[in-house]
Nucleic acid binder design. Structure first.
Length: 480
RNA sequence: GGCCCCAUCGUCUAGCCCGGCCUAGGACGCCGCCCUCUCAAGGCGGAAACGCGGGUUCGAAUCCCGCUGGGGCCA
């Protein structure tokens, strides 16, 4: 019986959780669940300049929304500073690290000089033989192994070799007493018994440095797995320039968490030709060995397709609950939403108004936001008419049709889709018209547009009163 | 600049590790047709890729080298 694996997601709270980070979290989570291991969250907030509590909060919210619950934590590096100090002290005592009194300004100057002379801008090691703590402010540098190679065994990339001569004595603890990323991450991963470090490709180049820290501290090495990054459509690192990139932004745009998860997991991982995966299937099939090597471009069109797929399959009740917030955002007054719902329920339908809307508009929408906008005309709000379509409705002949059909609508007993459809079909049959001759103008009068969900369902949703009012406005309109 | 990673349709990818089954498969998107009260959804069909150059081999998308291109890290 081997010990269970332990993995972590360790974001810096310097901004919203973007889709790249979310995928890293997802892969960690799936790996842990697949292997019955432990997945935990660690907030890397030692960079006090850039870290904020709001960002940490947004990350936690994002992860919760995606359903990536953690078993431990969140741990916070800011609360563990004493630990880093303790291990720094050990390295200093053991002579494996040394105090450096070079100031950032001096280093910058030397760096420039080196560049100008065509040399690489590495630290020149001038404080290397210093042992005692100086009076002046100092930073702690690791005395790195200068010869040989550091080989990183990566579960995705295989063995990656780095020449130790390329490494310089990098800083472990800054002069302000705060640990650098490469130091804190090693101390934490080792102390927290992380068995598999699964993170973005951008950290692969940092790994040989971290390996040196593991060795200096006599910590056992974890396994590493560096997953390729997610790029924008222009093939550069994803950033705000690319529009929506944060998990919360997608939530607010009306995407479903299961759609985003499904999209993200397939970006860089595959299981044959399968595109749609349930949560259980993902846990069952997920395997780091099947994670690709190539950076992936984020394609919103495919996310849209997946979201549409999940929207169609989702429980109408759940969607209806979520929809309200999007209607409000589409500037539908709250009391209009209530009025429509009350009117609907007085009709005695088994479904609620929201559920009925979801069922007729859902399969035509990619997102809840789209659904809310497309169904906006169901309320007593100002409708923006398609100008050209409206002009066609104002032809005398068409206005007559609308007027005559209105008369029948007014007197029909049951106001439901089936009855209305029969009414329209009888009407056009009697007059030798095609259904579209009357249905299309009706659609325009009621919705403002030439496209909508099936007309008779729309009418049922709208209710007799609003239908007659909008129809009347259309056939009474003077065509000047 | 140095180092590291990567390279199959526009995009995500299967195939590559263990060469022949690949006249390169699937999905999104796109185009066409069917269904149809419009639009979706669904069904059917189509256009669309092994970056380039050298090897190795009877045979390479698959192995090796170089180039080119892209990305990242260092500061």
């Amino acid at each position: 019986m081997t010990d269970p694996c332990r993995v972590r997601f360790a974001p810096s709270p310097t901004g919203d959780l973007h889709v790249g980070g979310a995928r890293t979290a997802l892969y960690n989570w799936l790996f842990a669940r697949h292997h019955d291991g432990v997945y935990f969250l660690r907030i890397e907030d030692t960079d006090v300049e850039r870290s904020t509590a709001e960002a940490a909060d947004a990350i936690v919210k994002s992860l919760q929304w995606l359903g990536l619950e953690w078993d431990e934590g969140p741990y916070r590096q800011a609360e563990r500073l004493a630990l880093y100090r303790e291990y720094a002290e050990r390295l200093l005592d053991a002579g494996k690290a040394y105090p450096c009194v070079c100031t950032p300004e001096e280093l910058e100057e030397r760096r420039k000089a080196a560049m100008a002379a065509g040399r690489s801008p590495r630290y020149d090691g001038r404080c290397r033989d210093r042992h005692s703590k100086p009076e002046k402010p100092w930073a702690l540098r690791l005395k790195v192994q200068e010869v040989g190679m550091t080989v990183v065994k990566d579960l995705i990339h295989g063995e990656v070799r780095f020449d130790n001569a390329e490494l310089d004595d990098f800083i472990l603890v800054r002069s302000d007493g705060l640990p650098t990323y490469n130091f804190a991450v090693v101390v934490d991963d080792a102390l927290m018994h992380v068995t598999h470090v699964i993170r973005g490709d951008d950290h692969l180049s940092n790994t040989p440095k971290q390996v040196q820290v593991y060795r200096a501290l006599d910590f056992p090495l974890p396994e590493f797995a560096h997953v390729p990054m997610i790029l924008g459509p222009d093939r550069t690192r994803l950033s705000k320039r690319h529009g929506a990139t944060s998990v919360l932004a997608y939530r607010d745009l009306g995407y479903l968490p299961e759609a985003l998860v499904n999209y993200l997991v397939r970006l860089g991982w595959s299981h044959g030709d399968q595109e749609i995966f349930s949560r259980d299937e993902l846990v069952h099939y997920f395997d780091l060995a099947r994670v690709g090597h190539t950076p992936a471009v984020f394609d919103q069109a495919k996310l849209d397709w997946l979201n549409g797929h999940y929207l169609r399959g989702a429980d109408p009740k759940r969607l209806a609950d979520l929809l309200v917030a999007f209607w409000l955002k589409a500037e539908v007054p709250a009391d209009e939403i209530e009025a429509a719902a009350a009117r609907w329920s007085s009709l005695g339908s088994a479904r609620t108004f929201g559920e009925a809307v979801v069922q007729t508009f859902g399969e035509r929408s990619k997102t809840l936001w789209e659904l809310a906008q497309a169904s906006r005309f169901l309320f007593r709000v100002a409708i923006d008419y398609d100008v050209r379509a409206r002009e066609k409705c104002l032809r005398p002949e068409t206005q007559r049709h609308l007027r005559d059909v209105s008369t029948r609508i007014r007197s029909v007993i049951r106001f439901d889709a089936a009855t209305l459809e029969k009414l329209y079909r009888d009407f056009v049959a009697e007059r030798g018209l095609k259904l579209g001759d009357v249905a299309q103008p009706t659609r325009v009068a009621l919705t403002g547009r030439t496209v909508s969900p099936p007309l008779f369902h729309v009418m049922e949703l709208l209710g007799r009163e609003i239908c007659l009012k909008r129809l009347e406005a259309m056939w009474q309109q003077k065509n000047d």
